[in-house]
């Protein structure tokens, strides 16, 4: 039980500082909406919206994920908070789980605001239980490996560049799974048709939560 209490302390710390500074959520949200609008200029009215919407949605969320995950550890690094976290009695797996949950909260908040905007702009019904489940599974996948790579990237010379280079090829299965499942969901298919995709998303989540939890130690040790 004390494990989870420590984890929530770290998550709460991140949420609280975000609540005060409003750095990640505000800027990433603005970015997300800008990307959606730019996609609209790129595709215009020439194409069927249902055909390109899943791709647009997940490209947007992937980039939003990269941006907000990048900030998650850079903020710690800038003020030297990370050293404080390391000397605190919290073990490394507690730090991983705490930071991962905080990123999950941020991304879910961003998505919860961006999805209705998306639905409004493109006249689509995205607020369905199917889309919610897909978004949740895919976002867990993003933060599971993203937190690991973000911690790794902040300790390299080219901080902001390393994360996308590592993150994007590794999350390919999440993107493929999320886009295809959303496509099925938007065209009104039932749960049964997307089990394959949801299975891949769930498998990715399980594998990466486990592996990242196990190897996180080696990424942050000084």
């Amino acid at each position: 039980m004390t494990f989870w209490r420590k984890v929530f302390a770290i998550t709460w710390k991140d949420v609280l500082s975000e609540f005060r500074a409003r750095e990640i959520i505000t800027s990433v949200l603005v970015f997300t909406i800008l990307v959606i609008i730019i996609f609209n200029f790129a595709f215009g009215e020439r194409v069927e919206m249902v055909a390109v919407a899943p791709g647009m949605l997940w490209v947007t969320f992937t980039f939003a994920g990269v941006l907000s995950l990048n900030r998650s550890f850079i903020l710690e690094k800038e003020d030297g908070c990370f050293e404080g976290l390391l000397v605190s009695p919290a073990s490394r797996d507690v730090i991983y789980t705490g930071k991962m949950l905080a990123s999950l909260v941020f991304l879910l908040v961003i998505e919860a605001i961006a999805l209705p905007v998306f639905a409004f702009l493109f006249n689509l019904t995205v607020l369905t239980p199917e889309i919610t489940a897909i978004t949740l599974l895919a976002t867990i996948g993003f933060v599971a490996c993203g937190t690991l790579f973000s911690a790794l990237a902040t300790n390299t010379k080219a901080r902001e560049l390393v994360l996308p280079i590592l993150f994007l090829p590794v999350v390919v299965p999440v993107i493929i799974g999320a886009v295809n499942a959303s496509e099925l969901a938007l065209s009104g298919k039932s749960w049964g048709d997307m089990t394959g995709w949801l299975g891949i998303l769930a498998a990715f989540d399980v594998v990466f939560l486990t592996v990242a939890y196990l190897v996180f130690d080696y990424v942050i040790e000084e």
Partner: peptide, 25 residues
């Protein structure tokens, strides 16, 4: 060396999931 080892492990474990998802796609 440490970082590369982490990427070497994570990247390899990703391969079957990548293959599975692309095949299904």
């Amino acid at each position: 060396a440490r970082f590369a080892a982490v990427v070497g492990i994570v990247g390899f474990l990703d391969v079957p999931i990548v293959f599975l998802s692309i095949t299904l796609w």
